[in-house]
Design a protein around this nucleic acid. Structure first.
Length: 335
DNA sequence: AAGCGACCCAACCGCTGTGAG
DNA sequence: ACTCACAGCGGTTGGGTCGCT
């Protein structure tokens, strides 16, 4: 392996760049360009290696570098792209004019990563950090609740309400996971998603509908068709899928789920309609209350531009998790 | 005000990809 | 086919800054 000249050129200066060095580098590149980074420092009168000059120019001195805080839109794009591309910072940076891979990488590690972790989402897999055993416990709880002795109409109502609430919560988890595993594979690098928040994506979250690309037949790149997926993440997905299958039976034939579709056993893209019916009324579920708030705004396209409190996946999660009524419930699932 | 730890980010390091010879 | 040199990428580091005690 050929080592970088910088690694053994100890006579060359390292560390932070001085304003004088910056000026020299800018002046030279503006006059002569940067076709040969190796030769550039000597020609520009800099005691730096070419690699260092290149990095300084690309990450800081380039005139089109955008400085300052990342916007919410940029953050959203980064998350969407990262969910499909992984730590391909350079490719992500291609979609954010003026932002460098280094800057995006730093922003991810210092801000987004923490944010995702706080929300109970694994920043590597973009899936909720779920211990399958918790889901088993939940399944058992639901089964026990359903098989409990119903002593009175009031008791029956309370049980039904609890079940409906939990069903709605589970459906949100399901929609999130489905969306993360479907939408990101089919829509990333598609301008309809990157340019602004995708209304379909949010509808999928709140309604349980599956994103499809019927309006956007843009070809899927090879990377997106075969995204990097860790075996561990895949297993977790299957576990949840299986669990959901068991929950379907548990909720009975009263119309809560009658379609019979099941999750794909892998990261295959589901193109059929969502097997789940519409959620129950908003008054009975904290989840559907979120849905209700948003849908009441009318045109789904409004979700993206008005900055409503539930306009992103993150915010939907945050709202849900922050709700005192169900915080303990989510802690069980997400912690 | 001082000490300390957490955080941020520019820069470095080491590796891979690629093209020329 | 092979070697070499360079560009580019992603992970990591360390110095500066900030906030808390």
């Amino acid at each position: 392996m050929v080592r970088s000249p910088c690694s053994h050129a100890t006579a060359l200066k390292k560390g932070p760049w001085t304003p004088d060095e910056d000026t020299k580098l800018i002046d030279y590149i503006e006059r002569n360009g940067h076709e040969n980074w190796k030769a550039l420092p000597k020609l520009a009168g800099l005691n730096r290696c070419g690699k260092s000059c290149r990095l300084r120019w690309i990450n800081y001195l380039r005139p089109d570098v955008k400085r300052g805080e990342f916007s919410e839109e940029e953050e959203r794009v980064i998350v969407n792209l990262h969910s499909a591309l992984g730590n391909k910072w350079s490719r992500i940076a291609n979609h954010l004019p003026g932002r460098t891979d280094n800057e995006i990488k730093n922003f991810w590690n210092t801000h987004i990563r923490k944010k995702l972790l706080q929300m109970g989402i694994d920043p590597n897999t973009h899936k909720p950090r779920i211990d399958p055993s918790h889901f088993l416990n939940l399944s058992q709880l639901l089964g026990a609740a359903q098989s409990g002795n119903i002593a009175s109409p009031w008791n029956s109502f309370l049980k039904l309400q609890a079940e409906v609430t939990q069903l709605a919560n589970i459906q949100l988890v399901r929609n999130l996971l489905q969306m993360m595993n479907t939408n990101t594979l089919t829509n990333i690098e598609n301008n309809s998603l990157l340019g602004s928040q995708n209304p379909s994506l949010f509808r999928a979250l709140v309604n349980g509908t599956t994103i499809s690309n019927t309006k956007e037949p843009a070809p899927i790149s090879q990377d997106l068709a075969n995204p990097p997926v860790t075996p561990q993440a895949n297993n977790g997905f299957q576990d949840i899928s299986n669990l959901w299958g068991s929950c379907e039976g548990g909720f009975g034939p009263e119309g809560l789920n009658t379609n019979g579709n099941t999750w794909s056993s892998s990261y295959g893209i589901q193109t059929e309609q969502n097997p789940l019916p519409a959620l129950v009324s908003a008054s009975t579920s904290p989840v559907t209350s979120i849905v209700h708030q948003t849908e009441s705004k009318g045109d789904p396209s409004n979700y993206s531009t008005t900055g409503t409190p539930t306009s992103t996946i993150f915010e939907a999660w945050e709202k849900l998790i922050d709700d005192d009524n169900i915080s303990s419930y989510w802690n069980d699932i997400l912690d």
